[in-house]
């Protein structure tokens, strides 16, 4: 058994590294750069029942160590994703995690019901944390009762395990995490972006046409680490960690905080080859840590009597 293979609900992965939703489209662009079968899994772009164009441009703005985006869930809609995008991905030996979104509970249920039937979709990611749409999205992710109720409804119709993507834009993320666990979530993915804004000095106006956007990139990594550290001690379902991962060392840090797998987002835009690079580098880092298998690292920062000796090269 490889030191990188992991098993979490619905997902038997050859390695724990996957591109995060919204940072990889439906894989076509990156397939020109490397073999997608190298990846642990792929979290594809959010799908809503109807096609969406998304927000006006500018849709991105930079900040030191990060970027703001307000794409607005642009996607070709449920039918096209089911008939074209997901079947196209079947040529690769890689499980797909389908990110599902919508404006109403019925939207989520409709997308979940259909996409969970696609042969290569092994899990759903319930997107209740998009900060860039007027209705739905984050509205479900900031209220524990709404989050729990929606999780239940989606679980009822889904053929595959359901992971809920949590928003960091809450005062108590543990409360939301517990609520969705009670609602039947099989796992969590965290964190989505932090709501932010930048203002252009020459115009005096926000740079993004949507005014606010989601902050991602290395600047949010400490927030993600802290939240995973807190949540992983309070729930018994696995966490796929994300938020500013750029390197194999970052992946290990997420595992130590309590994650069982890791997703790479913004760094795909800066280095499109980052995922295969991380996968290649991980075994050596495990060796340095004296770990036989990456899953040993999950939660080692808070588990008692599990101090690590990190041997620098």
């Amino acid at each position: 058994m490889s030191s990188l293979s992991i098993q979490i609900p619905g997902l038997n992965l050859r390695n724990p590294v996957m591109p995060a939703s919204g940072c990889f489209g439906f894989g076509k662009e990156f397939s020109q750069l490397y073999d997608l079968s190298l990846l642990g899994a792929i979290m594809v772009k959010a799908t809503t029942p109807e096609p969406r164009f998304g927000n006006p441009t500018p849709r991105v703005a930079e900040t030191p160590g990060g970027m703001l985006n307000a794409i607005g869930l642009q996607n070709p809609g449920l039918e096209k994703v089911f008939i074209e995008e997901l079947p196209w991905l079947e040529q690769f030996d890689v499980p797909i995690i389908a990110n599902i979104a919508g404006s109403t509970e019925d939207d989520y249920v409709a997308v979940a019901e259909q996409l969970s039937q696609a042969p290569n979709v092994k899990a759903l990611e319930l997107n209740i944390s998009c900060p860039n749409v007027k209705t739905g999205g984050i509205a479900f992710g900031t209220d524990p009762d709404l989050a729990k109720a929606l999780t239940k409804k989606v679980k009822n119709v889904s053929e595959v395990p359901v992971y809920v993507k949590l928003s960091p834009n809450v005062s108590d993320i543990v409360k939301i995490a517990r609520a969705v666990e009670e609602g039947g979530a099989d796992g969590l993915t965290m964190i989505n972006t932090l709501l932010g804004m930048r203002i252009d000095l020459t115009t005096g106006q926000p740079i993004l046409a949507n005014k606010t956007g989601g902050l991602s990139g290395p600047s949010i990594k400490p927030v993600a680490i802290r939240m995973i550290y807190e949540v992983s001690q309070q729930v018994s379902i696995p966490i796929i960690g994300m938020g500013g991962i750029q390197s194999a060392e970052d992946v290990v840090e997420f595992f130590l905080a309590g994650a069982s797998a890791a997703a790479v987002g913004t760094q795909n835009f800066i280095d499109p080859f980052v995922c295969p690079k991380i996968i290649e580098e991980l075994p050596e880092i495990l060796q340095r840590l004296g770990a036989d298998h990456i899953s040993e690292l999950t939660g080692r920062s808070w588990k008692k009597n599990e101090r690590l000796a990190y041997h620098r090269p």
């Binding site: 919204g22 940072c23 990889f24 489209g25 076509k28 662009e29 990156f30 750069l33 772009k45 096609p51 969406r52 164009f53 998304g54 441009t57 500018p58 849709r59 991105v60 703005a61 970027m67 985006n69 794409i71 642009q74 070709p76 809609g77 795909n268 835009f269 499109p272």
Partner: peptide, 27 residues
């Protein structure tokens, strides 16, 4: 010219409407 993220078509930052469908979903 448009503000870009990835430059390879994956991030949807630099999307524009088509003249045939100026308010629709095609891009």
């Amino acid at each position: 010219e448009e503000r870009m993220g990835c430059g390879i078509g994956a991030c949807f930052a630099c999307v524009c409407h088509t003249k045939e469908d100026p308010h629709g979903y095609t891009y």
